[in-house]
Design a protein around this nucleic acid. Structure first.
Length: 726
DNA sequence: TGATCGCGCCTTTTT
DNA sequence: GGCGCGATCA
């Protein structure tokens, strides 16, 4: 009974629910995931269900990883490890690999990511002769993806308008291209699995019998394909356990349908619904603010979130001059807070609507010489150099795969230009074979230079393919890097080049962990894992920078949400669509409810967007905050400031004593404290020599050549920098 | 073939 | 402000 000891009565009821379908509806911070985790442990321990008979799916790899870690604590590692725990996509990928015959797909299919999808869409557009200005590849890909999420094949694509007709044709062509490349895209993983189950009752029965219990986290973010899969899988035992919060549904744009909650109620008349309203994460102030924002949404059941944590500090709303000033405020505040006892840098998170906003923040952290963790952004596996190496591996795995071939045939440059490639691709189409096969019999009409280059390339790839069985993934990577002289290609003496090379090495290290697994397994995993730290990165005690979307499911003692301006949050794309606006509101709600203790909301007076600096309008979400929750009367101050600025276009009060105002006044410069040639010491970077120092507003920017870490630019006001004894 | 330049469009958000 | 794409030149 230990499992239930620390839970409240509602949580306990959910965890120890008898067989049958259960829906747990809960607000943020109510221990949803904890309930799910305990439910799994409960089934294994108390109900004696074999771990491998339980399928638990979550939304992200990260969530799955964390849940597994918690289960290891509860159950011991051996039992936790045998659990089928992961994302929908990974689960389907595994099922499809096993059932490829019934699914009618090759066993060694490759998983195509968003980038690959876009290439195929572009190719389809080109082949069909459509204008990619009129039919944007991105939007076409979106339409195809949406169709697949709703389990609609090209043949059944409904065409109301002429544009739909075009989409349908592109979709058809796109599917043909996928097939020709032995590829399945992310959406296919779900759609093909659902279809396979639908058409092969015997296959489905196997999995229905196997999984006595199916558990789902973040159920509000499932799409139709996923809902169908859940219905299919739980069809026999009917033990479907879903955890959801409709107010946190923020993925409608990619097909998530929170109406699945209603569907679940309709399809399971015996459904047990349990509400969790007590919040264990945030102060009452934060909860009240979150509720004030979310209550404007229509069609929702208002939950009264409550906590026993007390009111806590007021919310701080801060107006900055521009995005750099905003970033500086964030860094400054974090530096100040962490100087106090009990607050560590890792307790802080900075959230923003779009990835583009991270740049100013990163700059500010770098200038202050403070470390930070960036989640997402240019994801590891989306980096050019990583995609290159993976394309080589995919080519070795299946030389007939055209997308990878096209990617690397001239990388690094080996004098195989677009013209040559076009000739090859045309020949391949004529002969109805792959480009790789064409290389064995080079078509006429190519110069000797091109021919020689192609032969060399072919010999190289053939060598790899021949070695494929006898080498591990890591060895293959080494071989590829060596043969292509990839090293010389990426390391161009720039910092960026070094970073790229380091990334390649990182990938190699990841591959080294796959010693006993095949190249196929490695490639499948790599396609499904989205960021590198889910493959085991070290935890550092530093503030986290992340988008509001990727903040879901996380919590931090101190949260900053930046860019609270109309057009940013809410995003400009949602301003005239009530449904999308409701989603923006939920996004804001997710952000607010990540905070445990303190909340800082910032906006800038002007912001540079698309290279142009514009005056901003504060976010409607700020207006929703009851003033008794916010420290000071920022609203009045904002009005006063705007009044004052009218006509001058200048920001900041003349007597301004806020840090941002000081920054903006150019006349408070003082003499630099450091001079070129001086030896200095920095807490984190060690010793170095000052190269240059110049005043910047009231602060000073010093460029230092550190012995260990090289050149860094630091703000004296923020960097722990001191003169070193000569 | 490959480097360079100007142009247009852009950015949501992720498995 | 930056990226991809097409046009243009060495």
């Amino acid at each position: 009974m230990d499992l239930l000891k620390k839970l409240n009565p509602q949580q306990r009821k959910a965890v120890a629910a008898p067989d049958g379908s259960v829906l747990v509806l809960a607000g943020p911070g109510s221990g949803k995931t904890r309930v799910l985790t305990h439910r799994v442990a409960w089934l294994v321990q108390e109900m004696d269900v074999a771990a491998w008979r339980i399928m638990a799916v979550t939304f992200t790899n990260k969530a799955a990883r964390e849940m597994r870690a918690r289960l290891e604590q509860l159950l011991g590692s051996s039992r936790a490890r045998s659990l089928t725990l992961g994302t929908f996509h990974a689960a389907c990928a595994r099922i499809l690999r096993r059932e490829h015959e019934a699914a009618g797909i090759p066993r060694d299919y490759a998983i195509f990511d968003a980038d690959d999808q876009l290439r195929l869409v572009k190719q389809a557009l080109k082949e069909l002769g459509y204008d990619d200005k009129l039919y944007r590849p991105q939007s076409m890909r979106g339409a195809i993806s949406r169709a697949k999420n709703e389990l609609i094949l090209p043949g059944a694509y409904s065409t109301v308008s002429y544009r739909d007709e075009i989409v349908k044709r592109i979709y058809e062509r796109y599917q043909a291209l996928l097939k020709a490349n032995n590829g399945l895209d992310f959406d296919d993983l779900l759609m093909v699995t659902a279809r396979t189950f639908g058409q092969n009752p015997d296959v489905l029965a196997k999995y229905q019998e196997r999984y006595r219990h199916v558990l789902v986290d973040e159920f509000q973010d499932t799409n139709q394909a996923q809902y169908t899969l859940l219905q299919q899988l739980s069809g026999l035992h009917r033990n479907l356990f879903c955890v959801a919060d409709e107010d946190q549904s923020i993925y409608a744009w990619r097909g998530a349908d929170y109406r699945n909650i209603r569907r679940l109620r309709d399809d399971h008349p015996d459904l047990t619904t349990i509400l969790l309203e007590e919040n264990y994460r945030s102060t009452q102030t934060i909860l009240d603010a979150a509720r004030a924002v979310i209550r404007h949404n229509p069609d929702r059941t208002d939950k009264s979130l409550f906590t026993q944590r007390g009111r806590g500090p007021e919310i701080v709303v801060h107006e900055a001059y521009d995005q750099d000033d905003e970033a500086r405020f964030v860094v400054d505040t974090i530096a100040r807070l962490t100087a106090q006892a009990g607050i560590r840098p890792g307790d802080c998170a900075v959230m923003y609507r779009t990835n583009a906003q991270s740049r100013a923040l990163e700059d500010a952290f770098i200038r202050a010489g403070l470390p930070y963790r960036l989640v997402g952004a240019t994801r590891f596996y989306a980096r050019r150099e990583i995609k290159d190496v993976i394309a080589f591996l995919r080519l070795i795995h299946n030389p007939a795969e055209g997308v990878s071939m096209a990617r690397v045939i001239n990388v690094p440059r080996r004098s195989i230009g677009t013209k040559t490639v076009t000739v090859l691709e045309n020949a391949a189409r004529e002969r109805e074979c792959s480009v790789y096969e064409v290389l064995g019999e080079i078509p006429a009409g190519l110069g000797t230079r091109a021919q020689r280059a192609l032969t060399l390339f072919l010999k190289m790839v053939e060598g790899w393919v021949a070695a494929r069985e006898s080498m591990t993934a890591a060895q293959l990577i080494d071989r590829v890097l060596e043969d292509t002289r990839y090293n010389d290609y990426v390391r161009d003496d720039s910092d960026e080049g070094e970073d790229r090379w380091a990334n390649v090495q990182e990938l190699r290290n990841v591959a080294a962990d796959y010693e006993d697994l095949t190249l196929t397994d490695f490639l499948a995993d790599v396609a499904l894992v989205s960021d590198v730290d889910s493959l085991g990165g070290e935890e550092v005690d530093a503030p986290t920078l992340l988008t509001l979307h990727s903040a879901k499911g996380l919590e931090f003692p101190i949260v900053f949400i930046v860019g609270l301006e109309e057009g940013i949050l809410p995003h400009s794309r949602s301003l005239n669509d009530p449904d999308q606006m409701a989603e923006e509101r939920r996004l804001m709600y997710v952000g607010l409810t990540r905070a445990e203790d303190r909340l800082f909301l910032t906006y800038a007076f002007r912001r540079t967007r698309y290279g142009e600096s514009e005056y901003t309008e504060t976010s409607r979400f700020l207006d929703d905050l009851p003033s008794n929750l916010v420290s000071g009367s920022w609203r009045q101050r904002r009005e006063a400031k705007r009044q004052e600025n009218r006509g001058t276009g200048v920001w900041g009060s003349k007597q301004g004593n806020s840090p941002s105002a000081v920054h903006n006044s150019q006349f408070t410069t003082r003499d630099p404290q450091f001079k070129a040639g001086q030896r200095v010491r920095h807490a984190a970077f060690g010793e170095g020599m000052v190269i240059e120092s110049r005043a910047a507003g009231s602060d000073e920017i010093v460029t230092v050549a550190f012995e260990k870490v090289g050149l860094k630019r630091l703000m004296v006001g923020l960097a722990p920098l001191e003169l070193a004894g000569s």
